[in-house]
Design a protein around this nucleic acid. Sequence first.
DNA 1: GTAGGGTTAG
Length: 883
Amino acid sequence: MLCKTGSRIIKLNEVTRLEETCSRLLSFCNSNVLKEGISVHSPIIKLGLHDNLFLNNNLLSLYAKCFGVHKARHFFDEMPYKDVVSWTGTLSAYVKAGNHNTALQIFDSMLVSGQCPNEFTLSSVLRSCSALGEFQYGACVQAYMIKQGFDQNPVLVSGLIDFYSKFDYTDEAYKLFNYVENHDKVSWTMMISSFVQDQRWNQALQLYVDMIEAGVPPNQFTFVKLLAACSVLGLHCGKLVHAHILLWGLKLNVVLKTALVDMYSRCQSMEDAVKVSNLTPEYDTLLYTAMISGLAHNFMFEKAIVAFREMRISEFVPNNFTFSSILNVSSLTFSLELGQQIHSRVVVAGLENDVSVGNALVNMYVKCSDNIGDALRVFRGISLPNVISWTSLIAGFAEHGFLLDSFHLFMEMRAAGVQPNSFTISGIIGSFNAAELLPQTLMLHGHAIKTNLYKDIVVQNALIDVYARLGMLDDAWQIVHMMSHRDAITYTSLASRMNQGGHHELVLSIFTDMYNDDIKIDAFSMAGFLSTSADLGTMVTGKQLHCHSVKSGLGKWISVANGLVDLYGKCGCISDAQRAFGEITVPDTFSWNGLISGLASNGYISSALSAFDDMKLAGVKPDPVTFLLVLSACNNGKLVDLGIEYFQSMRETYDIEPQMDHYVHLVDILGQGGRLEEAMEVIQTMPFRADALIYKTLLRACKAHRNIPLAEDMAKRGLQLDPSDPAFYILLANLYDDCGRHDLGEKTHKVMSEKRLRKSPSQSWVEIRNKVHLFVAGERLHPQINEIYKKLESLEAEFKNHRYHQGMGVGDSYYHSEKLALAFALLNTPSKTPIRIVKNSSICKDCHNFVKFVTHLIDKEIIVREGKRLHSFRKGECSCTGC
DNA sequence: GTAGGGTTAG
């Protein structure tokens, strides 16, 4: 009898060798064309060999491979005799098809039939236990294994390691691993993979070292896992592992290439990632997806889009991951148009209901569309929204300012039976910035405690952030103290919130707390501390932070570099600020803003404005903050027309809608320039409702230009909005006094005291030898500085009598606290060191002149900072008429 | 003749 398979013709005429021949034929069919299986099967039946167990097992395998599990099962049921191979073959067919429940049913039936399982059976059964989360069942299998003496079988050991890892029992898996004497490369790789899954990156690498020492050579599988660890451990480690791949002479298959590309892009070395991807011509959908995602993460958006196009040209079909990645590009670039184009391709590909793609679409519409309804529509189309879908949508509502809606969606999510995770809770809490949402915050806090999410550091950090933001510092610290461990984010958010709340002097102690807690200072925390230092004007600490950032290499982070520009600018060391700026390779908007702010606040108005021109030439787009700085520079430089011009250019040239702050500056510019009517017109026509601040601004201008009627109007309007602000009374009273209407001045003061309004006591502080000294107006004099204080008073008297400054009323407005700080500083600073005084209230023109006068006499630089504004006084640079 | 490990997103 002849049997034809492909081009081969085999003679089946020797019955004695028939079994062997059929077996060979079948394995040939297994690895080749499935149709030929049939042409082999029929002669076997014709020859009456259908109850040959050996042949049937072969056929069973063939059916499973070629026709699927159902045909195989049918064949199995028809088999007259079954042995362990037949059972295991069927069982494994179900496992391969992912039908684990039926696989375990087959295993039960097998035991009932009295058939004893072997190591092959148990291996398949273990896989099903892992997949189904059947811990008890798996444990029984392990017990059986031990009983049958399979406990050293490397295949079963790998299966058990996988099984324990799936249940997060990595330590148990490692114990088992150590118990076994000899491992093959699969069980080594399995254990490495288990450590990687448990994020024990260093242990994973250590195991690789052990593996080599044990004389087991690694393969591509091993390295794929090791590279995943390197993605976290960093580029240095990644390159080392890459070198090992070369040393072992492993072939660069597409999977290994993908893992390398992924590692390099996660280590922010896209150049290496591209180089690796070009090493071999082999590409597939997954590699393209890894490239697109890597390019997107490294902000190379154009290239990501090019790769996506290239992929389509090469006819690789994008899958759900690919669409997620490319949608991420449009989210990150805020390009709605690209997002919509991809959305239509998603629809064509029939993937719009897919949860991962749906999530990416929700995220895209949240980021790119002004209408949160777009995101909601996509969300409602996802067939089975998971926790990520809900979290994206909830965060989206919060980002768009619909805080209460986001909270209601959170409730809807719970009602839908989807369990929130730490991201959901932290995302929603992170958006709560108003005290009115305290009840919701407390509810979420309670929910986190009940669900144990409270133990998650991300949630703890979010709670700390929201409490610190709401000024509830005790509550924030309470969480810090009860945490089992803290990270850089914990301290950074505490520091920045306390800084925003004005508790500058407390912030720097957090640096020490962090050091004592053994937490590494990262770029974010460093930027935060630099900003605190800048706001405090504490040069000594600032310089130490600078040293630390140089030594630790943090200085190459743009946020840190920008912090340094800001620090030196705010501390009045403009040349250092310029040097720090010069060291930034590609300055961004923040860098330029820092430079402009430093120049402007130190009186270099024209340099500040030319820096703004340079910024435009460098192609960096100004943002609303840039314009605040530029307008403020014009205000200080009394450049009224230029200021108006810049204000108008915001909308016309840069498409930036002026905010309330910008209008306040415009009113100030016009007011200080004496164009009070125009300023008033701006207030009346601007698209915002006037607030107390803008009335106060114009009132101050009225005082300078002695316009009583408008000033009275401003004070009236301002007090309607904020009746508790004493500034309106003080400014008005001083204006009356200036105009010689002392009667009205006195009356205004009286009304103010009847309303029990008092100026908050002025505070000033100086930093000398790394210590901040605080002085409050009205406090008792320290004996040591009593003498110098008296000297200052006599200087003041002299100043008052100075012919150019007569009638300035210095004694009334030059605050006690500042004088104390100055006296203290004069006593304690070396002769050439500048004195830095920080005030918590504004510094008036008279104080200005007095400090200038003192500078002239003592030949020392004095820097006075009020809020964010800084005044530097140097001998000879004084423009007052007295010098 | 029957058994084990790998890549991509949010």
